[in-house]
């Protein structure tokens, strides 16, 4: 768990981060969004003390970060940045081993951990361990960057535009992979982005920042239904609202009894996917099946529309 209390950063007369407070629960993903210059990165960098706060404090699992020596604190917090900052003179394995080595882990334990992480990120250790960063594709570099940040099993992972350098197709796959790995490891994540789709896709909670201030910190649904300020509404995008809302709900949560004709939809698909399919096939309703393929019910356009309204 991480608590940010009245965190402020001033450079001379300008206030870059202005009295920001929020809390991220254990195992949750908090996404900080805002336009460029909103103070997102500075906020993130104050958590691992790369930037010294002018006021306020950060508690990690109840412990004030100021009470922990700077380097020791950073050993406990994973950090991924836009360019990844992989060490070009070190192999993939050596890059991933960085923090465990700093912590003085035993050689065998490090080797085992590196292999485990490469497997987790679907990079064949035999092929990739001894490669240098410049020999990897952008997507592979990104995965190594995240693997390196997770190497010492940090309870908290900070990510600053981690997908910013990827092209759109690879980006959405990388986001899915991150979600899957995060669900498995239950690592608390604070992620900074300027991409609203990414925020809605990944965030359990979203913090909207503008000019150093935190405008709203809420779940994605709440952000859509009850925006705190006009700016939040504008940032979320009025035309996108219903679709964003639909993409937050799974078909399973809106299931109707009965059956319908046509190609079945999975229980785990979102309502947005279902609507898209219905419109494309020109049907009023489609059957729904579970992961095993057994019929579970049906989903209709009328039912979906009910879930896409601002006021139920």
């Amino acid at each position: 768990m991480i608590e940010i209390e009245r965190l402020t950063k001033r450079y001379g007369a300008t206030t870059v981060v202005d009295d920001v407070s929020f809390r991220v629960e254990e195992g949750a993903i908090a996404v900080v969004v805002g336009t460029s210059g909103a103070g997102k990165s500075t906020l993130l960098r104050m958590i691992n003390r790369l930037v010294a706060p002018s006021a306020g404090r950060v508690l990690v699992d109840g412990e004030d970060t100021m009470a922990i020596p700077e380097d020791a604190l950073r050993h406990r917090i994973g950090y991924v940045i836009q360019g990844y900052g992989l060490f070009p003179h070190r192999t993939v394995a050596e890059n991933i081993a960085t923090v465990p080595r700093l912590l003085g882990w035993e050689k065998r334990r490090i080797a085992a951990r590196v292999e485990e992480l490469l497997d987790l990120f679907q990079l064949d250790p035999g092929e990739f361990a001894q490669k240098f960063p410049h020999q990897l594709s952008g997507g592979q570099q990104q995965r190594v960057g995240v693997a390196r940040a997770l190497a010492a099993k940090p309870a908290l992972l900070l990510m600053d535009e981690p997908f910013g350098a990827l092209d759109p197709v690879i980006r959405s796959r990388a986001q899915d992979d991150l979600l899957a790995i995060q669900r498995r490891l239950r690592t608390t994540v604070v992620l900074v982005t300027h991409d609203m789709n990414e925020a809605f896709h990944l965030g359990d909670r979203i913090a909207v920042m503008d000019r150093g201030r935190l405008l709203q910190y809420a779940s994605p649904g709440e952000l859509l239904l009850r925006p705190a300020e006009a700016f939040v509404e504008q940032l979320v995008g009025t035309a996108e609202r219903p679709f964003r809302l639909l993409s937050l709900t799974k078909v399973g949560e809106a299931l109707e009894p009965g059956h319908a004709e046509g190609e079945p939809i999975l229980l785990s698909a979102t309502l947005r996917d279902a609507l898209s399919q219905l419109v494309w096939l020109g049907r009023e309703a489609l059957p729904v099946v579970d992961a095993a393929g057994a019929p579970a019910g049906r989903i209709s356009i009328a039912q979906i529309l009910r879930h896409g309204r601002a006021l139920p």
Binding site: N48, I81, G85, F87, L102, R148
Partner: peptide, 27 residues
């Protein structure tokens, strides 16, 4: 030495000496 590399090194908790010896000087 790329800024992203030194930033990442700092972020992972390398001390100034470790950064110089392990990252900056080799590069």
């Amino acid at each position: 030495v790329p800024a992203a590399v030194t930033d990442a090194a700092r972020g992972m908790g390398m001390s100034a000496r470790q950064r110089l010896v392990e990252v900056e000087l080799p590069l």
